[in-house]
């Protein structure tokens, strides 16, 4: 079975190009941008009317992007994940931990064992106690997990104006804007599960907009207006990244938009490392069940032939 798996993966990937051709041309994009536009207006109106009732956040719906891992034949764009890791390491990891991901997992991003070892060794990990009962620092090894920037949530909150930066391990699955009726029914057919990455991309690129006067009044001091933030008009995180801040070796544009796409894809991988394996296994399983159901249906017809019912 373990040998079978790569074969299943290959089978799943072989169908990917066809699926993408469909996705690109499909009605998804249009309806998505319409929704985004439609989402803006009521939110703005509501805000201008003052607060008849609690305003609903986020004020704007995130834009739906094309992700390589979306859809039944989704797969990782390894170059994108590597760029996302770079952004995480150079920018986000200053405040955000990723404690459930181990360095050894990075082999899934296309790195060799040696590269992973070298990468891990760049981190300092606390170990111990040693023979004298003391904790000590040592370079990381592949079986170590990404060290968190703060020793505990209290320290994280204290260093960040009372708002602890959330851990990245599961964030891409733990954040998603609500999908209203009837969108959530269409999601069943489109297999939309990218609410997390869409939200993260929208949030990182959503700074620097002008709030309406009504909204401006409700912004707490020390927070930054962002209409895509899901629980308030503004959040404690300042704009985290700017154009050109991280250097890309592969020629990808060094813009906030590209950075946020890459880091969001990387976070999706961190949250759901078996996503591609899952979808490829699913393809084979679905084929099997449909064929088996068809056979059973024919057998059922034979058994019941001559028995009116």
């Amino acid at each position: 079975m373990k040998k079978l798996l790569p074969a299943l993966l290959a089978a799943g990937l072989a169908f990917a190009p066809a699926a993408f051709a469909q996705d690109g041309k499909g009605p998804n994009e249009n309806s998505a941008s319409e929704q985004a536009a439609a989402g803006q207006d009521p939110a703005a109106e509501e805000a201008e009317e003052g607060h008849a009732e609690t305003p609903h956040y986020p004020l704007k719906e995130p834009e739906e992007l094309d992700w390589s891992f979306a859809g039944p034949f989704g797969h990782w764009d390894l170059a994108q994940l590597q760029r996302g890791l770079k952004v995480y390491k150079e920018v986000c990891s200053a405040c955000h931990g990723m404690k459930l991901v181990a360095f050894r997992n990075l082999e899934a991003l296309g790195y060799s064992e040696e590269q992973v070892k070298a990468f891990a060794a760049e981190y300092t990990v606390q170990d111990g106690p040693n023979g004298d009962g003391e904790m000590f620092d040592r370079p990381g090894i592949p079986s170590d997990y990404f060290p968190s920037p703060f020793p505990n949530p209290q320290a994280a909150a204290a260093a960040n104006n009372g708002a602890a930066p959330p851990d990245f391990s599961l964030l891409a699955k733990a954040r998603a804007a609500e999908r209203g009726f009837p969108t959530f029914l269409f999601d069943l057919l489109t297999q939309y599960q990218q609410g997390g990455p869409d939200y993260i991309h929208a949030l990182i690129t959503g700074y620097g907009q002008e709030p309406s006067p009504a909204v401006e009044k409700s912004i707490q001091p020390g927070t930054y207006y962002n209409p895509y933030f899901m629980s308030a008009p503004a959040l404690a995180m300042p704009p985290p990244i700017s154009d050109g801040q991280v250097e890309y070796a592969d020629g990808a544009p060094q813009t906030v938009d590209q950075y946020s796409r890459d880091v969001a894809a990387f976070m999706m991988w961190a949250a759901e490392p078996h996503l591609v394996e899952r979808k490829a296994t699913g393809f084979v399983t679905m084929i099997f069940l449909i064929v088996f159901a068809g056979l059973l249906y024919v057998v059922k017809g034979r058994v019941w032939a001559g028995t009116p019912h």
Binding site: L170, K173, Q193, R278, K279, T281, G282, F283, T285, L289
Partner: peptide
């Protein structure tokens, strides 16, 4: 087959993001 469709393609559709 319907069950497998959800398990393999939409495993978190019926769940809530906050539980992560």
């Amino acid at each position: 087959a319907l069950f497998a469709y959800m398990v393999f393609y939409l495993p978190n559709y019926l769940g809530h993001p906050d539980n992560y």
